[in-house]
C-alpha cells in the first residue's frame, strides 16, 4: 500500500516530514532571492523596473565607483560610508543590548523557577505592539520638548526650553534598535544560563573567586553560546533595519535598509538596489562564517 510506504521506508518518511518546509523555503525565499540576484546583473529600465535582456555588472561597479561623463570611473566612498555606519551602529546596538541584556537574563535564570516562565513572557511583551508604533513612541520620548527633555529640565540637567537633542542622531537609532531587538539578546542568553549548573559558581566562590571573578571566569564563558546566538540575532536584523533609522535617524541617519529602499522607490534603480542587498548578504555571510568558526569550538 502506498500509505504504508513512510512506515517501511525511513527515507520516504523523512522526505515527507521536511518536504513542506523545503517547499516553502524554496518557493518563497530561494526563488525570489534568485530573481533578485538576476536583477542585480541587469540594466535598469528608464522608468523603473529592468531591461530583461541587458546583462551588465554596472550595478556592482556603481557601488564603489562613480561613472564620469567621459565614461571613466572615479572611486566613490559614499555607499561604503553608509555600509560602515550601518555596521558601526549595529555593532554598538549589539554591545549595548549585550551589556543591558546579560544582567536581565542572569536575573531571570536566578529567579525562583515558578517566576521564570512569567519573566520570559514579559520579555516578549514589546513584540505585541507594532514596530512602527514603538518607534513613534520613541519619537515622543526623544523629540524636542518631549518627555525626556521635560524630565531633564525638571532635574535641572538642561535649562528650560533647551533640548538634549537626541532625536535624528545616530544615538536615537542605536536606542531604538537596542530597544527593538533586546528580546533577541535576552532569550538565547537566558536559555544558556538556565542550563548552567550554579554549583559551578559555588565552586568558584569556594576557591576564592569574588562575584566579579566568578562572573568573568565561569558564568560568562559557559554562557558564550547564548551570547553568540543573541549577538547574531541582534546584529543581523539591526544591519538590515529600515523602520527605526527611517523614523529616528533623520536625513543624515541613512542605513543600508533605507538606501536599498531608496533605489527601489525614489531612484527607480532596481539593479542597484538588488546589488546593494547582495553586497550586504555577502558581508553578513562572511561575518557569520568568521563568527561560527570562532565559537564552534566551545563546549555545549
Amino acid at each position: 500500500m502506498l500509505l504504508d510506504l513512510p512506515r517501511r521506508s525511513p527515507a520516504v518518511a523523512r522526505l515527507l516530514l521536511i518536504g513542506p518546509g523545503i517547499a516553502v523555503i524554496g518557493l518563497f525565499m530561494l526563488i525570489p532571492l534568485g530573481l533578485m540576484a538576476y536583477v542585480s546583473f541587469l540594466d535598469r529600465g528608464a522608468y523603473g523596473g529592468v531591461v530583461w535582456d541587458q546583462h551588465t555588472v554596472e550595478a556592482y561597479t556603481s557601488f564603489l565607483f562613480e561613472r564620469n561623463l567621459d565614461d571613466s570611473l572615479t572611486f566613490n566612498t559614499d555607499y561604503l560610508q553608509i555600509y560602515l555606519r550601518s555596521f558601526l551602529l549595529s555593532l554598538s546596538t549589539t554591545l549595548i543590548a549585550l551589556l543591558v541584556g546579560f544582567p536581565v537574563a542572569l536575573y531571570m535564570s536566578l529567579a525562583p523557577a515558578k517566576w521564570r516562565n512569567l519573566l520570559v513572557f514579559l520579555v516578549t511583551v514589546p513584540f505585541w505592539t507594532n514596530l512602527l508604533v514603538r518607534n513613534y513612541a520613541w519619537i515622543l520620548l526623544l523629540r524636542t520638548n518631549g518627555l525626556i527633555d521635560q524630565w531633564a529640565a525638571g532635574l535641572g540637567l538642561i535649562g528650560p526650553g533647551e533640548s538634549v537633542s537626541i532625536l535624528y542622531t545616530p544615538w536615537a537609532i542605536t536606542i531604538g534598535l537596542t530597544y527593538s531587538f533586546m528580546p533577541f539578546m535576552v532569550l538565547p542568553i537566558y536559555a544558556s544560563l538556565e542550563k548552567l549548573d550554579f554549583r559551578l559558581v559555588e565552586a568558584a566562590y569556594d576557591l576564592g573567586a569574588t562575584r566579579l571573578k566568578a562572573l568573568a571566569r565561569v558564568i560568562v564563558p559557559l554562557s558564550l553560546p547564548g551570547i553568540a546566538a543573541g549577538s547574531i540575532l541582534v546584529f543581523i536584523p539591526s544591519l538590515g533595519s529600515y523602520v527605526t533609522p527611517e523614523l529616528l535617524g533623520g536625513s543624515k541617519g541613512l542605513m543600508i535598509g533605507n538606501l536599498i529602499q531608496l533605489q527601489f522607490a525614489a531612484s527607480r534603480n532596481w539593479p542597484f538596489g538588488a546589488a546593494l542587498a547582495f553586497t550586504l548578504l555577502a558581508m553578513v555571510l562572511i561575518a557569520m562564517v568568521l563568527y561560527l568558526t570562532r565559537f564552534r569550538k566551545l563546549p555545549e
Binding site: D197, R199, L200, E202, A203, A204, D206, L207, V218, P221, L222, L298, P299
Partner: peptide, 13 residues
C-alpha cells in the same frame, strides 16, 4: 576552607 562537591562541580570549559 575548600570544598569537594558531591557532583565534583569541575569547570567544564
Amino acid at each position: 576552607v575548600n570544598t569537594v562537591f558531591q557532583s565534583y562541580a569541575l569547570f567544564p570549559h
